[in-house]
Write a protein that binds this DNA or RNA. Structure first.
Lengths: 230, 230
DNA sequence: GCGATGTTTCGGCCCGCGCCAAAGCCTTGG
DNA sequence: CCAAGGCTTTGGCGCGGGCCGAAACATCGC
């Protein structure tokens, strides 16, 4: 009765409100210092330090020493994906942290999911790429088609570098607010970076929200036309 | 700093070894009585009863009264999927419940993931369906193609009934042992049932293992030819 | 009805763990 | 160097919650 992996450790990490707050804060994709995380979670630096060690030992976050700061990030793509899945389950069961706050609609519209775009905008982009035949179900999960490769180059992505990386190019991730897939993986991360580079959007100062500029939104809507389903 | 769903409650459920054992036991897809779960988790009936109430209130399991027994099952597809995701993360981080036991290879080869087939066999089936063009990325997630529909009828599935159900027909689920997708959703569940009906395979008495008969395995391999990638 | 079986509720024990303040360590900047 | 800032370690407090035994319900077979 004891075969298979052990969920318990990870569950215990998520089960404490302080640690959960830290992890959700890190879902924003930015590396945060121990002090910032302490403030974010509402505890003293001492308490936060202990939690960070636990999270690190459990393999959920990575810590990088830099000067006299210690920056924490999620340990990887998979951690973000698992968190998003759990957020979806929690949302489905009606477990809300507080009565949906004013910032909630913004989060549902567009947010960062660790390192790629999520929310309505993320789903729109995914759907558009699928509808135009740029993404397909390959022999191993998702794949970029030949026309898709051309599109990516045109969008300003460095495909050669992305494909050289160990990280899979395309992954799908179930969006908690839309309950549909959005694009993760190296390609998803590259698209989000490109949105920031080109100034179409910028990340909110705190939390995971992504806000588009007016023109950026218009350009995004033509680049990822929502009605483009063939 | 308090927007979005609240993971904490679900995390706390998974964080206790007793509850985690119960949930993993329920991943086998069979409905289990309170007593069976108590034995499975190694606690008294009194303790198990308390945990079952908690899990039920958190929305992770459903309880059905039947005679003097109370049968528990996972609350649904999404719970199974979330658990599988966490199992994957735990496996990736090397959190094992004990040094991989003798039954572990069997689990990796073929097992039940709540109500559909997982493990190497599950991935093989998914790949085969994709390679033959029976599954495609539709406008909304996965879709069965026209030839796919014909295949499903030929395999003995009642497509009309499946499509009438509220439940989505096709979903992909990331397999923890293979780290690749296998097929979930109504179609995935129907295929697994069919494997049992036709006697190609049967579920292990305890746990999640699925064992094929010799001829069943051969038939499965031709029905879901692994090399069938066009 | 009356035991047998399955499950829940109650009371009480006790361990684990989150929390903080204070002190110590390391890095940086003057 | 010394002082300041950021983080960790240590020690001690206190709460939350898992665990069990015993008793109370509920259900079935006879």
């Amino acid at each position: 009765m004891k075969e298979g992996p052990d969920i318990t450790r990870i569950g215990a990490m998520l089960g404490d409100p302080t640690r959960a707050n830290m992890l959700v804060a890190l879902m924003g994709g930015k590396a945060l210092t121990a002090g910032e995380l302490a403030f974010e979670a509402g505890v003293t630096a001492a308490t936060a330090s202990g939690h960070l060690r636990q999270l690190s030992q459990a393999g959920l976050i990575a810590i990088r020493q830099q000067g006299r700061h210690r920056y924490a990030t999620l340990a990887g793509d998979e951690v973000g994906h698992a968190l998003e899945t759990l957020l979806g389950l929690a949302a489905a069961n009606g477990h809300l942290r507080s009565r949906t706050g004013p910032r909630d609609p913004g989060l549902r519209a567009a947010r960062v999911c660790y390192d790629h775009l999520a929310g309505a905008a993320g789903v729109q982009a995914f759907d558009s790429l699928v509808a135009r035949g740029f993404l397909e179900l390959g022999p191993d999960a998702l794949a970029l088609t030949a026309p898709g490769r051309a599109w990516a180059q045109g969008f300003g992505l460095d495909l050669a570098r992305l494909e050289a990386a160990r990280r899979p190019l395309c992954r799908s991730c179930l969006d908690w607010s839309e309950r549909r897939s959005h694009l993760a993986g190296g390609l998803g991360a590259a698209i989000l970076s490109r949105l920031f580079e080109t100034g179409w959007a910028r990340r909110g100062d705190s939390g995971r929200a992504v806000t588009f500029t007016a023109t950026g939104r218009a350009l995004f809507d033509t680049a990822f036309a929502p009605g483009a389903r063939s």
